[in-house]
Design a binder for these strands. Structure first.
Length: 411
RNA sequence: GGGCGGUUACCCAAGUGGCCAACGGGGGCUGACUGUAAAUCAGCUGGCAUAAGCCUACGGCGGUUCGAAUCCGUCACCGCCCA
């Protein structure tokens, strides 16, 4: 059911948060979007709006949800969302988001990942109104002739202008020929899907524009390209991505999610407000002003952010327990309710139990941690790594702030 | 096909015969402090060993040497230039 809104309101909503890196381009796209929306209203034909996701890892993270949220907005206005699984493009490796060529995946990995991807995506998207497409369905059948035909629309110079290619070119890093094809493939997708609108992160702009160019060459009306800012990872600087290990997975348990949000640097909060919450621009502005003036405490604001993120993926009932766990564990330095259990033989040196329980990787590392006062047994800092375990009752082993195990003497 | 340069720990990168388990930076970990797992500061960051010490490691293999990440040979891979 399309929500009744004027075209003006719709454009304003859909363009909110769109960043094209160039005001003129953004204006032009906004104008094209308006035309499309008007056409759609007049003809009653919904717009075909697509976004592609390369299944390079088994899990989606909240970085992926930025474009999904935008897709969802289109859905709510009655348009057709198309979720494209890059089952073919993932094999090529997208050069956009890295300074280095990405390792290529096998077909099997890609298909396994695709399965979990789509399931997770429906936490955001309306399953009923989403068309899921796998791009190997059409791309794997493309002939060399067609490839050359498509390639004839582009020059090498156009590619070299791209920041991440020009950088690598300048620093003598390899630029693989197959990487050039990535943009062509995305363009091909756009044409195949007869897309009216394509969404992507700002770094994808080049690819989206390639789609426009190809559609035009094929006698179609070029799609509206809309890009959203990139979400930074938990480190606060780099793009959130599996390969840098700075992700917050949308399938992670509430406590984990809450804690990870709390671990982002204060400086990254604004990025998160805008990209991964349901807050309106007014609410965001209120928080930012409060932070700037000192009226709001950064920690409290971040907790608010953490609650919001947990609520989105786990529902409102998961929020309180997740926050309570955080307060207990981190702010009060308490112990978690659940911790893995490890059975030891009486007389086992503590250091061995640390390794055996999987809390540390080697005895050398365990020794170092003891030296650094990072190991506690029943709350007491351990001084002697060779201490022999022999407790009647279960003992709580703590390594650092976050790793716990319950040690139980074996019979 | 020819010439030149390169390959060092999770990443970047220094080291050109012994003082090298290998400078520095990033990341990660621990601690202190705090406002949180933020910021800041300090320490740690191959394995085994209570310790002395031992083992493994500077692309692979082989050699020179009392001794090699460092020299030589060869193979593999990468980059640049020429064709």
């Amino acid at each position: 059911m399309a929500i009744e809104q004027s075209i003006d309101q719709q454009v304003a909503l859909l363009m909110q948060g769109i960043e094209m890196g160039d005001e003129k381009l953004k204006e032009a796209m906004g104008k094209e979007l308006r035309e499309r929306l008007e056409d759609s209203q007049n003809t009653g034909v919904p717009l075909r709006v697509y976004c592609g996701y390369d299944p390079t890892s088994p899990d989606l993270h909240i970085g992926h949800t930025v474009t999904m949220r935008k897709l969802r907005q289109f859905q709510e206005l009655g348009h057709q969302a198309i979720f494209v699984v890059g089952s073919f493009t993932a094999l090529v490796g997208d050069p956009s988001d890295k300074d280095k060529a990405r390792p290529r995946l096998t077909k099997e990995q890609v298909m396994a990942n695709a399965k979990t991807y789509t399931d997770q995506a429906f936490k955001i998207l309306d399953r009923e109104k989403t068309e899921v497409r796998f791009n190997d369905r059409w791309l794997s059948g493309v002939t060399l002739e067609q490839v050359i035909e498509v390639a004839s629309n582009f020059t090498v110079q156009q590619f070299l202008v791209r920041d991440n290619f020009s950088k690598r070119y300048a620093s003598n890093e390899p630029i693989w020929l197959h990487e050039f094809f990535y943009a062509l493939l995305q363009g091909y997708d756009a044409a195949e899907l007869r897309a009216d609108v394509q969404l992507g992160a700002t770094e994808q702009l080049f690819n989206l524009l390639a789609g426009r160019k190809l559609q035009e060459a094929m006698g179609m009306k070029p799609q509206v390209a809309l890009t959203v800012p990139v979400l930074v990872g938990t480190d606060g600087h780099l793009r959130m991505s599996k390969s840098t290990g700075n992700t917050i997975g949308i399938d992670e348990p509430p406590e984990e999610m809450y804690g990870k949000v709390m671990s982002i640097p204060d400086s990254a909060m604004s990025n998160y407000f805008r990209l991964v919450t349901r807050w309106t621009p007014d609410e965001v502005a209120f928080l930012e002003e409060g932070l700037a003036s000192g009226d709001l405490h950064p920690r409290d604001v971040k907790m608010r952010l953490a609650r919001e993120v947990v609520e989105i993926y786990h529902g409102v009932e998961a929020v309180e327990p997740a926050e309570a766990a955080f307060v207990h564990l981190v702010q009060e330095g308490g112990q978690p309710e659940d911790m893995p259990e490890h059975a030891y033989q009486a007389g086992t040196p503590l250091i061995d139990a640390m390794v055996d329980s999987g809390l540390v990787e080697s005895k050398s590392q365990a020794r170092r941690l003891v030296d650094q006062n990072g190991v506690r047994l029943n709350g007491e800092v351990v001084e002697d790594p060779n201490f022999n375990l022999d407790f009647q009752e279960a003992a709580v082993l703590q390594v650092g702030k976050r790793r716990f195990a319950r040690l139980v003497r074996a019979q």
